[in-house]
């Protein structure tokens, strides 16, 4: 590619996609902001919601807040406007340690060859009841 369209904000002619979702937006000639750091931004929180009693909290998205209490209040407004939850957890994104799915020696590989951990590994005659 001769020119990098990300650095040419003027090049918005004739090159659109409908995938702006709420209407077509240009997918060329618009800077992305990738790699640009923002100073003084409120920290990012990940939000987890318990949909109803008896269920686990499930990750629903993230938001920015100045502190923990504001994160909970904002999470209520952003993620539970229609009774989607009975309980909210928020945790600062930088406090989460995650596995990396693309590591050379995948974290989950050891589980692959232990088929005997699954009930289907065992042959039981069909006439044995309740099993």
């Amino acid at each position: 590619m001769a020119t990098d369209p990300t650095t040419d904000p003027q090049a918005t002619g004739g090159d659109y996609s409908a995938d702006g979702g709420h209407g077509a937006v240009p997918l060329q000639g618009v800077p992305t902001g990738l790699g640009e750091a923002a100073a003084g931004e409120w920290p990012l929180y990940e939000v987890f919601v318990r949909g109803k009693r008896g269920l686990n909290h499930v990750h629903v998205g993230s938001l920015h807040a100045a502190d923990d209490a504001m994160a909970v209040r904002n999470a209520r407004d952003v993620y539970t406007r229609r009774n989607e939850g009975v309980s909210i957890w928020v945790v600062r994104a930088d406090a989460i340690t995650a596995s990396s799915p693309d590591e050379k020696d995948p974290l989950f590989a050891p589980a692959g060859d232990k088929v005997y951990r699954h009930p289907t590994f065992y042959d039981i005659p069909a006439d044995v009841p309740h099993m």
Binding site: G21, V30, L34
Partner: peptide, 15 residues
């Protein structure tokens, strides 16, 4: 990545 950022960011701006 760049296409997604443009699309999702501008979708957000639209909202």
């Amino acid at each position: 990545r760049a296409t997604l950022v443009r699309q999702i960011a501008q979708h957000a701006h639209s909202e």
